[in-house]
């Protein structure tokens, strides 16, 4: 059974499945007559995409560095250096310091870690809920559909910003994970509606009927035929959600919800630093740069995954056309 986890959709969950080693040399693949499952094929196609791989490596590195930085950085994010206020980058403060002597490097790393986690986790939660709700509503129809869509409509008319604002004070002091959950809980409805619509059309397609006539259970049909055929949209949605959540979190922090001082996120750093962007650029440039880099990385991974999943994408295919002239004819 393929285990194409597009539902995970955080951009870093690479489909797995099949036992074949993935580091087969490219030219060895062509002659193969042994079938491999979709999971393996998709992984191969993904690994062939240099840009996507770069994105994956960059994202992993950012995460690793931000997580391990307390081990090697000279300052912690909540420490104050009372001897240097608003200093540009130097040997002891790699990214400089703030007005009150905080180390910008330590803060940026802390913020990066927070923001990435919030962005990726929210996107993951939202796409999982959206795809489960959308696909089930569309596929099963009837009262399942009506019930789920009623919930979606209800959540859509509730002003999510306001609700988060109202609930946040109650959560103050408790884990920030709760905050992520809250964000995810309000981010999935529109996607779910779109996915439901797509499922309605997919459900009537003959290949789904064919699977039903084979006796495939509904869960399997949704996993195997419905979700992969909506993967492009889901991936785009995830990449957008990652970026927008990081920014939304900033907005919330501004009003005093979300990540609260002394804790920091990229968003709060950028907000605080951008007021004096021209005179003390180090306060904001590093945070801003890292935000751009991480969103770009997520986008590249998303593109790569999309191409890998979509058999019609040009990228992801390799040179085998040259070796097999018939393919050329068939496609023409």
């Amino acid at each position: 059974m393929t285990t194409t986890d597009v539902t995970g959709g955080t951009g870093k969950s690479v489909p797995t499945g099949g036992a074949n080693p993935v580091d087969v040399p490219l030219d060895a693949i062509e002659a193969e007559t042994e079938g491999v499952t979709r999971g393996t094929l998709v992984l191969r196609r993904f690994l062939r995409n240099k840009l996507a791989l770069t994105g994956l490596v960059v994202l992993a590195l950012l995460y690793a560095v931000s997580l391990t930085s307390p081990l090697f950085a000279p300052w912690a994010y909540d420490e104050y250096d009372y001897l240097s206020f608003l200093q540009p980058p130097s040997a002891s403060h790699w990214f400089g310091t703030t007005q009150i002597g905080e180390d910008v490097f330590a803060q940026t790393m802390r913020g990066l870690q927070r923001s990435l986690t919030i962005g990726l986790l929210t996107a993951a939660i939202s796409i999982v809920i959206a795809s489960v709700v959308g696909a089930c509503a569309g596929y099963f129809g009837g009262w399942v559909d009506r019930g789920l869509m009623w919930i979606v409509d209800l959540l859509l008319v509730l002003p999510s910003f306001l609700i988060i604002a109202v609930i946040s004070p109650a959560l103050r002091g408790s884990s920030w994970i709760l905050f992520v959950l809250l964000l995810g809980l309000f981010a999935w409805m529109i996607t779910a509606r779109i996915l439901r619509g797509m499922t309605l059309t997919l459900r009537e397609r003959e290949f789904v009927k064919a699977a039903r006539f084979m006796g495939a259970p509904s869960g399997l049909i949704i996993r195997r035929h419905i979700l992969p055929n909506m993967a492009s949209l889901m991936i785009i949605d995830v990449t957008i959600t990652v970026g927008s959540t990081i920014l939304l979190e900033t907005g919330l922090s501004y009003f005093g919800f979300g990540v609260q001082p002394p804790d920091v996120s990229l968003g709060t750093l950028i907000r605080d630093g951008s007021t004096a962007a021209l005179t003390t650029p180090w306060l904001f440039l590093f945070a801003g740069g890292l935000l751009v880099v991480s969103v770009l990385a997520v986008n590249f991974i998303g593109d790569g995954l999309r191409d890998a999943l979509d058999p019609n994408a040009r990228r992801g295919r390799n040179v085998r056309e040259d070796e097999d002239p018939e393919v050329e004819v068939e496609r023409a």
Binding site: G35, H225, P311
Partner: peptide, 18 residues
């Protein structure tokens, strides 16, 4: 009647897997 996103192996294998 063929899922465009499944390779031939998986397509033919589907009834047997089910």
């Amino acid at each position: 009647s063929l899922d465009p996103r499944l390779p031939v192996r998986d397509l033919i294998a589907e009834p047997m897997e089910v």
